[in-house]
């Protein structure tokens, strides 16, 4: 695994779009870091699908609680990067 890989807001937006599409009424180029996923048009199933895709692509395992507890893109990016740090080889 690439131990320099980082997960960015752009990565998250791409994976959200690929797995669940994007609500046309939301400006994803705007400041969405602290918006609730529900406000962005994503219900829990969309977040479940997104977490699955992140796990596959980045070779990590997210705790089930991420789907229910992580409410914003900022927090999702943090959580994924924490995992990447944990799983990256020393």
């Amino acid at each position: 695994m690439d131990n320099n890989q980082t997960f960015t807001l752009e990565s998250l937006k791409r994976i959200l779009r690929e797995g669940a599409g994007a609500d046309e009424s939301v400006d994803f180029d705007g400041d969405i870091l602290d918006a609730d996923f529900e406000e962005l048009g994503y219900e829990s199933l969309a977040i479940l699908e997104t977490c699955g895709r992140i796990e596959r692509e980045y070779g990590i395992t997210l705790d089930d609680s991420v789907v229910s507890d992580v409410r914003t893109p900022r927090r999702m990016v943090e959580v994924v990067n924490e995992h990447l740090g944990q799983t990256a080889p020393a």
Partner: peptide, 8 residues
């Protein structure tokens, strides 16, 4: 249809 529905 919107892309949110296309995915599902």
């Amino acid at each position: 249809l919107p892309s949110r529905l296309m995915a599902q």
